[in-house]
């Protein structure tokens, strides 16, 4: 343990994920099934950075984020690898020290959940949520705490009177702001945002994105931001990682990835975005995302890949440095953005 504390991850990295494998292991009526939802993922996130994770639904991005947050329940289990945070020079191993992990929640690490509409208890007033989540980390008296929360809400553009209401009395946009306020009230070092804007209409979405960016800059927190919506990534992420079938297939600075995608899957994601004045038809990717219980051999993208060659069917391409980022593709240099 002491060794770990003495050798921090790296001064500039907040999160270090190494060789992480997390599988759903099921046994039902004698049938064993193993779903490789997170398969050998390695990534680091720097201080003050917004790191986007993109990928279509059931690509494993949600499992990845849950595993990073230490929020997995059986049948999903970590099989191999580690997740380590660095909070104020101290290393925290998510799967090594459950007690310290629990203490770090909300103090250092907070979470904005997918489907934020239902994250507040419908039968209790909003103020209780703030009290339950944040009070013990603040070291303030009840009165000071209340004042602090009200001040925080005002900064976020919410009337402090929302504290006295029940969730069903607030609009969707207000509830979303409220959960962002809840996730940031302790000024954590790291925020995990899982599809926070997906359920919102476009105007509220813009508003919420601007709010998250603003808070992040003011507090100097790092954010891992998950969404399938590439336009949102373009607007908010500093770097993005593309997940396909449980694996990280490409990673790099957002601008570079959008301009020069190295992986054919990334190229497809970007090509399918609408552009002003462009009237050509968007081509859909043939086939379905692979079944993670029985993934294709070699590169998992090969059955749908326009560039696939024999090598792709047999060998799994490693994630290697290329240009300003990393990519896992045998034909990485030959990809052209559509």
């Amino acid at each position: 343990m002491l060794d770990l504390v003495k050798t921090p991850v790296a001064t500039d990295d907040v999160l270090k994920v190494e060789g992480l494998k997390a599988y759903y292991q099921m046994n039902y009526f004698g049938v064993r099934r193993e779903v490789r939802a997170v398969d050998d993922v390695t990534l680091t996130i720097k201080r003050n950075e917004i790191y986007g994770i993109a990928g279509e639904s059931s690509s494993g991005k949600s499992s990845l984020i849950k595993t990073i947050a230490g929020a997995i329940t059986p049948p999903l289990r970590v099989v191999e690898g580690s997740v380590k945070f660095d909070f104020g020079g101290e290393t925290l191993d998510v799967y090594g020290e459950p007690q310290r992990m629990k203490g770090a929640r909300w103090q250092n690490l907070s979470y904005i959940m997918q489907g934020s509409m239902n994250v507040l208890n419908p039968v209790r007033k909003v103020k209780h949520a703030f009290h339950d989540f944040a009070f013990r980390h603040m070291g303030l008296s009840e009165r000071e705490f209340r004042a602090k929360v009200e001040q925080h809400l005002k900064r976020i553009g919410l009337d402090p009177r929302v504290l006295e209401s029940f969730p069903h009395q607030l609009s969707g946009g207000m509830r979303q702001r409220l959960t962002i306020a809840l996730a940031t009230v302790c000024e954590p070092d790291f925020i995990i945002a899982d599809e926070p804007t997906t359920a919102l209409d476009v105007l509220v979405q813009q508003d919420v994105l601007a709010l998250i960016k603003d808070i992040q800059q003011r507090m100097g927190a790092s954010i891992i931001f998950v969404t399938h919506d590439m336009t949102v990534h373009a607007a908010i992420s500093d770097r993005i990682g593309i997940v396909y079938a449980g694996r990280l297939v490409e990673e790099g600075p957002t601008l570079d990835v959008f301009q020069r995608p190295q992986h054919p899957y990334t190229a497809h994601l970007i090509a399918s975005l609408p552009r002003l004045g462009d009237k050509t038809r968007r081509s859909a990717l043939p086939g379905k995302p692979p079944n993670l219980a029985d993934p294709p051999s070699g590169c998992r993208f090969h059955p749908r890949c326009p560039l696939a060659i024999d090598k792709c069917k047999s060998g799994n391409p490693p994630l290697e440095n290329r240009l300003s980022g990393r990519v896992a593709c045998w034909r990485a240099g030959e990809v052209v953005a559509a």
Binding site: Y24, M26, N27, Y28, T73, P74, P75
Partner: peptide, 8 residues
Amino acid sequence: SRLSRMGV
């Protein structure tokens, strides 16, 4: 309840 059994 089928789902909750899967963890076994």
